[in-house]
């Protein structure tokens, strides 16, 4: 394997790990259900996108590349849909939106 591909895919894996970690930190630190959903959807979209791109670089097969991106698309779709369902249930169920009271 060409070292350039190795270096690029490793960098993508590290970046992906950073976004997943930050998403998890957000899940713990953010104040309410809505802001936590932000942390999960955004970080997972980018984290998985980078992971899939890194794996695609190493796969050496176009079929695998197509499959990896199909998985990413399915996860995006599932993520956006479940995010909407949770936010909608919280909103109609009357869970208040956390407001920043600090100036």
């Amino acid at each position: 394997m060409i070292p350039v591909v190795d270096i690029a895919s490793t960098a993508l894996f590290v970046a992906s790990g950073f976004y997943f970690l930050a998403g998890s930190v957000g899940l713990v630190r953010f104040p309410d259900v809505y802001t936590r959903l932000h942390a999960l959807t955004k970080a997972d979209n980018l984290g998985l996108g980078l992971l899939v791109t890194g794996l695609a670089l190493r796969s050496g097969s176009w079929y695998t590349v197509a499959k990896l991106y199909a998985i990413w698309l399915l996860v995006l779709f599932a993520s956006a849909t479940s995010c909407y369902l949770v936010a909608h249930a919280a909103r109609t169920g009357g869970i208040p939106v956390w407001r920043n009271e600090r100036p």
Partner: peptide, 27 residues
């Protein structure tokens, strides 16, 4: 979508990791 995903992921990651956790949410 690709460019905005980077912006969105980075934005929320920095807010999560920032010591003061800067958020000003609204609907």
């Amino acid at each position: 979508f690709a460019i905005q995903s980077f912006a969105g992921g980075t934005d929320v990651a920095l807010r999560a990791l920032h010591p003061r956790r800067p958020l000003d949410p609204s609907c």
